Amino acid sequence: MPDITLPVRTERLALRRFEGRDLEAFHAYHALPETARFLPGLAKTYTQCMERVGMYANFVFEKEGDWVSLAIEAKDSPGLLGEVVLKWLPGRGQAEIGWTLAPGARGKGYATEAAAAMLGLGFGELGFHRIEARLDALNTPSAELCERLGMRLEARLVDKWHYKGQWATELVYSMLEQEWP
């Protein structure tokens, strides 16, 4: 796979490599139970956030299993709004996309714009054949985002995960390269 050209720019956003200056903002939203609700694990500690930001800042995207997580920042107002991730899955040309936003950035179309840019990167520069999103069926905003992007609901896996003390139904949305606008 080729190197990733950064930053990725959209109409309102810049998707860039994480930096040390992102730690406080990253921790501010990842420490919230509402952010952790649909993510694996509990709300993150400051130390966990330090480790994650360091990992994201120094990502290598060369082989199956690698992740790229890009910081989402408004072009006209520097500061971390959230992140969008792409994981290279096993199997030829397969990837998974995800996103997390700070509470103040939600509901403004930033996640849709960032995810669309990441799909464009994945299908364009990186040459993936299929990109999927896996989410908790109770995560209605993310399901609606997948639909806005034109992703198709491929599966509803009832009681697939047991996490945070309860069973969760997993939705799998996906898109093929030839379906990308």
Rank of each mutant, 00 (worst) to 15 (best):
P2N: 15
P2Y: 12
T5A: 13
T10D: 06
E11L: 04
R12E: 04
A14G: 07
L15R: 02
E19G: 08
G20A: 14
R21C: 11
A25H: 12
H27P: 00
H27K: 05
L32M: 09
E34D: 14
A36D: 04
L39R: 09
T45E: 06
T45N: 06
T47D: 15
Q48G: 04
E51W: 07
V53W: 05
V53T: 06
Y56K: 11
A57S: 12
A57F: 10
F59T: 05
E62Q: 14
K63I: 00
W67N: 10
I72K: 03
E73N: 04
A74H: 14
K75Y: 01
D76V: 13
S77F: 10
S77A: 15
E83K: 08
V84I: 15
V85K: 03
V85L: 13
L86Q: 06
K87G: 06
G91W: 08
G91Y: 00
G93H: 07
W99L: 08
W99E: 01
A102R: 00
R106S: 07
G107T: 02
G109N: 03
T112K: 11
E113P: 04
E113A: 02
E113S: 05
A114T: 04
A115P: 00
A116H: 09
M118S: 00
L121F: 03
F123W: 01
F128H: 09
R130T: 11
E132S: 13
A133I: 09
E147C: 10
R148I: 06
L149D: 00
A155S: 12
V158I: 12
V158L: 08
D159S: 02
K160V: 06
W161E: 05
Y163G: 05
K164Q: 14
K164T: 07
G165L: 03
W167H: 12
V172N: 02
Q178S: 13
